[in-house]
Design a protein around this nucleic acid. Structure first.
Length: 696
RNA sequence: GGGCCAGUAGCUCAGUUGGUUAGAGCAGGGGACUCAUAAUCCCUUUGUCGCGGGUUCGAGUCCUGCCUGGCCUACCA
């Protein structure tokens, strides 16, 4: 196929919020997008990958206040951490900006001016809960209270988790601000709204044209927000969009509405433009060539959770501001791990940083590529599948081709002309367009399958040609060189196809063969007559134990974080140390079946006595009511005198297998806490418990 | 309650506008080889295509009802 004319493509991934670390779920998107961008560049197009940190909003302010530092400090730290994670996964942005930049403020003002001029803005008074102590209006999620419907306490501000009732936070009975713990009061405030309904016809046309959105997304929008005028139900009205927040708010103040700030979702997508502007300034380009030019494509990659913003508000804003509309919004699903939502307690909520300590990032890039289709299905990262897939495909099949042939031609280099390979190279070259098409459609899953089919033809070739046999016969040196020339060229071809997914391996291949894999067209012409470097391992197999270490570390991080949060939020007034939990971490999870095996009973200490020659033990006679009695030797001599114990109720493990001790048979255990020695604290039931009662 | 999407071998998924006998990879079983990171190669087992109706000469594919799952959204769709 002849090379297409050069396209001008601007690509964005959603802006990560500056309030948390990058995790495996985020990476689906940044990797998906990075692959697409690298593919376009490899095809010779001008393509730029634009992103930024999303920095504004209440959550950042709250965190800054809690940590007693400025918002700017919080977002600066987050930006550094995010960028480090992206570099670790080979995600190469052409510009990574911030929504808290002068460029963004400038662009917001410009776009706002256009929206105002178009008559889309109106003012409305709304009632909102106000935290008097903190001096802020409270977003729904910062209020809890009793559900007005079913009276369940501690429900969030927008809907009840018990009965499902929805309400406004002002309807809550006994509302409490989660920021200060005080009771908020209702205040009215003026908010600015954008009347999206005015853009209804445009949005229907744009979204339903079939070019810009995946069909299921277009259907969703039609059914949910836009309606169908042909239908008897008719069109639906788009709701006004509340885009201002009263001070104090961390963001940009609205120039013609002092004391009000743009809501974070207004300035966040404009961050795409602002970040492009930074890139243009650094590269001598004009912003208008990208955002006001029908000749340039704009592709947004986002998760399905933010569909609404990117397919209604954002095109509406762009249209009104007379800027280029998105060529396509590519929407992907969520990541599940081992078939379920990522879970902190199960250790599957893995941060990018934690992953990088234990597992090769190339493996995750390849795995995601092999799972991603062009649609918004969720993808699952099953650790077993991950290990098997990456090792089999990448290491055993692809890298193996080089690993089994390169060293035979280290001395001679590649043959001067490309030998007869029975059409293998041509065959693989011929499906290059099909692979390219799959990449273009974001159907990486299909691209990977096609590429692996080539690898599955290349390995049998090597098997048949048996270079290890040829090597033993000096007369067959030329044949040996030819066979390896073929194997390495097939390998190189695969690596060109895979380069967008595994850039690190492509780079190693380039070094081995002394030729950069920087052009898709190179997959059509074999490399001949060039030297071959010394082969070095390109990629280690993934070991399940590395995954386990990653999970363990994640779990540990979460426990520590949970402990910290808990002690801050709830236990701070008691000032309890977390040392006991650190000294003795939680045991493995047990089931209710496991628990009921242990029969705990209330028992009365009938008699407590010293044991001759015993340093630590007291001999207890425990009564379970009637004449049920047990003799137990307990290691509590340093902590209790016998007379302190006699008569009191304790809790004992009553069905513990009896154990013969030096001083006699012990028929159970008394429950107690503490590290030992003098610090032993025997458990007591509350008043009213009767000996013999089971503890459930 | 409504909407979008999905349900194909043990697992992950292909199956184009309906067209012979439903495929691949992995896993499982058997064998070969030893250059390669116990990698590779050959052979091989496995299906009520979620369930029931309908359209058709012909349905995994189209229509319809139901079931299950994911997501979205609700006294709006």
């Amino acid at each position: 196929m002849s090379k297409l004319s050069t396209r001008k493509i601007l690509v964005t991934a959603a802006l990560p919020y500056a309030n948390g670390p990058i995790h495996l779920g985020h990476l689906v998107e940044y990797i998906q997008t990075d692959i697409w961008v690298r593919f376009q560049k490899l095809r010779g197009h001008q393509c730029i990958y634009i992103c930024a940190d999303d920095t504004h909003g209440t959550a950042i302010s709250i965190r800054a206040q809690r940590e007693n530092r400025s918002e700017e400090e919080v977002i600066a730290e987050s930006q550094i951490a995010h960028q480090k994670d992206f570099v670790g996964f080979g995600i190469e942005f052409d510009n990574y900006g911030s929504t808290n930049s002068v460029e963004n403020k400038q662009q917001c003002e410009r776009i706002w001016g256009k929206i105002r001029a178009a008559g889309l803005v109106k003012e409305k008074e709304i009632e909102q809960l106000f935290d008097v102590e903190k001096g802020v209006f409270l977003a729904d999620r910062f209020v809890t209270g009793t559900c007005p419907e079913c009276k369940t306490p501690n429900q969030p501000g927008d809907n009840c988790s018990k009965c499902g009732e929805t309400y406004s936070p002002a309807d809550l009975i006994d509302p409490v601000s989660t920021l200060s713990g005080t009771k908020p009061e209702i205040r009215t405030a003026m908010h600015l709204f954008i009347e999206l309904e005015q853009l209804h016809d445009f949005l229907r046309m744009w979204s339903q044209s079939g070019e810009h959105l995946q069909p299921e997304v277009a259907n969703y929008l039609k059914g949910h927000f836009l309606g169908d005028p042909a239908d008897k139900e008719g069109a639906k009205k788009l709701r006004d969009w509340d885009i201002s927040r009263p001070a104090p708010y961390f963001g940009f103040e609205i120039p013609d509405s002092p004391g009000n700030y743009w809501y974070v979702w207004f300035d966040a997508p404009i961050g795409y433009i602002a970040s492009t502007q930074q890139w243009c300034q650094a590269n001598g380009e004009q912003l208008s060539d990208w955002w006001e030019n029908d000749g340039a494509e704009i592709h947004h990659f986002i998760g399905k959770d933010i569909t609404y913003f990117h397919t209604l508000f954002w095109p509406g804003m762009l249209k009104t501001a007379e800027l280029s509309l998105p060529t396509k919004v590519h929407i992907h699903g969520f990541l599940t791990v081992n078939g379920e939502k990522m879970s902190k307690s199960k250790g599957t909520f893995v941060k990018a940083e934690t992953y990088l300590k234990h597992v090769n990032p190339t493996a995750l890039r390849y795995f995601y590529a092999s799972k991603l289709g062009g649609r918004l299905d969720d993808i699952d990262l099953s650790f077993d599948e991950f290990v098997a897939k990456v090792n089999t495909d990448l290491v055993n099949k692809v890298v193996n081709l080089a690993s089994r042939s390169a060293k035979f031609v280290k001395e001679t280099g590649l043959s001067a002309t490309y030998p007869d390979d029975g059409g293998l190279f041509q065959q693989a070259a011929a499906i290059g367009d099909e692979i390219a098409d799959a990449y273009e459609q974001c159907d990486y899953n299909r691209a990977m399958r096609l590429i692996l089919e080539c690898a599955d033809r290349a390995n049998p070739f090597v098997e048949d040609a048996a270079p290890w046999v040829l090597k033993k016969d000096p007369d067959k040196a030329e044949e040996l060189q030819n066979v390896c020339t073929i194997a390495l060229n097939l390998f190189r071809q695969l690596m060109i196809y895979l380069a967008p997914v595994v850039p690190e391996l492509a780079e190693m291949t380039a070094q081995l063969l002394g030729d950069r894999l920087d052009d898709w067209e190179k997959s059509k012409t074999p490399l001949v007559g060039t030297p071959v470097g010394k082969f070095k391992h390109m990629m280690k197999r993934i070991e399940p134990k590395d995954i386990q270490k990653m999970v363990d570390e994640t779990q540990k991080e979460q426990e520590e974080a949970a402990a910290a949060t808990e002690s801050n939020a709830l236990a701070s007034k008691y000032n309890d140390s977390d040392q006991p939990m650190v000294d003795e971490p939680l045991a493995e999870e047990c089931t209710i079946e496991d628990f009921v095996k242990v029969d705990l009973r209330v028992a009365r200490v009938l008699k407590a006595e010293h044991v001759e020659d015993a340093r630590k033990l007291l001999k207890l006679t425990l009564g379970l009511g009637g004449n049920h009695q047990r003799t137990v030797f307990a290691g509590i001599k340093a902590a209790y005198k016998p007379e302190e114990l006699e008569g009191r109720l304790v809790v004992m493990v009553a069905n513990l297998k009896p154990r013969k001790m030096k001083f006699g048979l012990s028929e159970g255990m008394v429950c107690a806490s503490g590290p030992g020695g003098e610090e032993v604290f025997v458990l007591s039931p509350d008043q009213g418990a009767q000996p013999g009662q089971r503890v459930h």
